[in-house]
Design a protein around this nucleic acid. Structure first.
Lengths: 337, 337
DNA sequence: CTGTTAGCGCTTTCAT
DNA sequence: ATGAAAGCGCTAACAG
């Protein structure tokens, strides 16, 4: 393990260049008010020495760590992975680095995460809060004392900026689309009812159910095959049966798809299917799956830029931004054959 | 944006507790050699103040940032996402935090990434190197002067530890399995031939082809549908046709699956299919896909622990670890119906 | 345009 | 068992 001797410091550079440390400091901070030849000389010494400023020292002095914390439930979930990816790109444009912490949607974990970020004195925080009303969380956030942007799900109160998907409209969009296909027996399936996103989606569904005068068929929590199977079977046996399914999140969509396939139900001829959230193989499956697609990249860049603005003091009031979703029409809804 | 006043320092704690700063320092470092009552008193003050030590100051003093860098091609790729997830878990067990940087497999990006990590004085680095021979990279790594563990693909030379999948054997395993099913016209499909992993897999295939006396049918780069379609069509038209496909990476497996499906080729009756790397819907597709599964979690925890050992000076020589893959048997190979 | 100097918050001898 | 003081590498007045 290559153990270099101690790394060169700013003073080393100064000494070798025969100048004061202030001048070197000026150079690494943009080189204002430094004579051109001097600048060149110093830069030469810096690269010869392989000098890189010590961020710890700068943080201590500037009270800015050039890091932002990112707390997400899981990095394995494609939605959050995509989010993290874009956030990282945007952050690095301004020389910020991401401290990644996953919470697994567990409050205790999140508490620990926050302590860690506190110690590292992150300049700001992007967080996907677990539950809505998390009391202790907001407390601790206050203590963190840095700008915070809540993503995907809001934090209670209007203290913090939030960047959300317009789940309500997105759900309406999907339901309306099914209605336009003449579907009236639409099973809305799945999701953790404690999640804000799911609640919003359900409300969106209900609004369409009400205005179109449909029978309300909403079932929660169909993440595993057996549950989905049971729920779908139950509804199919009812009088009137079923002519469409709207999966409220990836897992329920995929499970529904499997169930329909295994029961030999022709999709979309007999039952239409639309899912919430795009996923890698949605276009590969036969029939391909029509989905409501959240603009993840836009959410991520918006949230990150907003956070950076807060950090720079350019935006001081809490913003509330909703990003619209769009429908990706494929075969399972009945549009194509 | 909750703007707290400046955060309490160790001195604040000391003053309020009426003790010297050394004692407080002892407390946050485990509380050795501190009288029990004193310890309790100080801890009380700390929690009242909401004190958290400033990592920047500690880094400066200890020459340890408690951060490790993670450079991966992309966090959106499920394989790397899973890797990052496990690495984060393991790192946090020892109070280390992950600085996440994505390289997109571009060498320039990687150079910049390294400079960033240098500034932040990471204590160690987990890296998935882009190309094998990357000259400048190794140079810069030397300058980083911290322990490095290469993952998934090796770095040239034996300076750095590496944790790899045993791609050679894994490929052999898949090929042998197909041979056991009586398949002899096996198309090996896809992948970037410049990648170490792909090269190893190809060699594994070749060894089985040679020992089993099969016709060699190896085609590179089938990440898009059209290419896969063309390559498969070509082989099917040849005399002898095709009785199996081994996809060397996710994309080529999925594309092959699509092509077979669209051409109405019965899988596995006429053509068997095995893929390299498991993926989310491999078990959902009909037929479900048999795959060679890399032990990502094991690779990640092994690599991270090894890195931590290097950091702690417990392991000083470069290790070379290969982790075995396993076959997940599903329907597409012909085992089940 | 350039240098001197005093800390930022913490750890660490070395005394006591 | 506890404290005083020096210094980690950098920046920001303030002089010159």
């Amino acid at each position: 393990m290559t153990k270099g001797k101690t790394r060169p410091t700013l003073h080393d550079v100064a000494r070798l260049a025969g100048v004061g440390s202030t001048t070197v400091s000026r150079v690494i901070n943009g080189g204002e008010h430094v004579a051109p030849e001097m600048l060149a000389r110093i830069q030469k010494v810096m690269s010869e020495l392989g000098y890189e400023p010590n961020q710890a020292a700068r943080s201590l002095k500037n009270a800015r760590s050039k890091t932002i914390g990112l707390i997400i439930p899981s990095i394995v979930d494609p939605f959050f992975a995509h989010f993290a990816s874009v956030a990282e790109q945007v952050a690095r444009e301004e020389d910020y680095v991401i401290l990644l912490l996953t919470s697994e949607d567990r409050a205790e974990r999140e508490m620990v995460d926050l302590k860690i970020l506190e110690r590292h004195r992150v300049d700001g925080l992007l967080i996907v809060p677990p539950r809505i009303g998390a009391k202790g969380l907001v407390e601790q956030l206050k203590q963190l004392a840095v700008p915070v942007v809540a993503v995907d799900r809001p934090l209670s109160g209007q203290t913090y900026s939030r960047v959300l998907c317009d789940n309500f409209r997105a759900a309406q969009m999907a339901m309306s689309h099914l209605v336009e296909h003449g579907r009236r027996r639409i099973l809305v399936l799945g999701g953790d009812p404690r999640l804000y996103t799911i609640q919003q989606r359900v409300e969106g569904c209900q609004s369409v159910i009400a205005s179109a005068g449909l029978d309300s068929m909403i079932e929660m929590g169909a993440g595993d095959y057996e549950t989905a199977e049971a729920l779908i079977a139950k509804r199919m046996k009812q009088k009137g049966g079923l002519d469409a399914i709207f999966g409220l999140y990836n897992q329920s969509t995929i499970r529904s798809y499997e169930v329909l396939q295994n029961r030999g139900v022709p999709v979309p001829e007999q039952v239409s299917l639309i899912g919430f959230d795009d996923f890698a193989l949605a276009s590969t499956l036969r029939p391909s799956i029509t989905v409501v697609n959240q603009a993840v990249a836009e959410m991520a860049s918006t949230a990150t830029r907003l956070l950076l603005n807060h950090i720079h003091g350019e935006t001081t009031s809490a913003q509330q931004i909703e990003i619209a979703a769009n429908l990706i029409v494929r075969q399972s809804c009945g549009c194509a054959q």
